[in-house]
């Protein structure tokens, strides 16, 4: 342990400074827990998803530019929707030198729990302009049903 003479403390010394530092640290910690630091949810698993609910369907959208349809597998098991696939960088040219390389290639697998029960027989998936759209019709029991009132 270092021995510090009483007179060596940096002047002026605020006895509350240590508490202040602690409080700031705790604030920072709670910010990280309760708010979203990264914009839009901060999904870390590729691909990022947008999920929408319509009157009688649930739509899942994902941005998958450069992913081939044949490299894409979508499965629905119970309430879990899984999107798997890979993106390959394909350059035909032989002798090339890269100036910038920002687009990554590799595999991905993302599972999402659907908050609404869907009919597994009525699922359609489309890939247009690099956007995957999966539309699932809601199961009959969760679909809104209109009740007619009869006057007597």
């Amino acid at each position: 342990m270092a021995i510090i003479r009483f007179g060596d403390w940096p002047e002026p010394r605020n006895p509350w400074a240590e508490f202040e530092r602690l409080r700031q640290g705790l604030d920072r910690l709670s910010r990280g827990y309760f708010t979203r630091e990264a914009p839009y949810g901060g999904a870390t698993v590729f691909p990022a998803l947008n999920v929408y609910e319509e009157q009688d369907a649930v739509t899942v959208k994902a941005e998958l530019p450069g992913v081939d349809v044949k490299d894409l597998t979508i499965s629905l098991e119970g309430d879990t929707l899984t999107i798997k696939g890979k993106r390959e960088a394909k350059q035909e040219e032989e002798k090339l030198s890269y100036h910038r390389r920002e687009i990554e290639s590799g595999s991905f697998s993302r599972a999402v729990n659907l908050p609404i029960k869907v009919d597994p027989d009525k699922v359609t998936a489309r890939l247009t302009n690099g956007i995957l759209t999966i539309t699932m019709e809601k199961a009959a029991e969760v679909r809104p049903r209109q009740v007619n009132v009869i006057t007597e």
């Binding site: 530019p65 030198s97 910038r100």
Partner: peptide, 22 residues
């Protein structure tokens, strides 16, 4: 958009990721 830019002897190629754009 994220891009890849590469150069060969004959040309410069730019590849940009722009999902949702027709």
């Amino acid at each position: 958009p994220a891009v890849d830019i590469y150069e060969t002897e004959a040309d410069v190629t730019v590849i940009a990721e722009m999902p949702g754009i027709s």
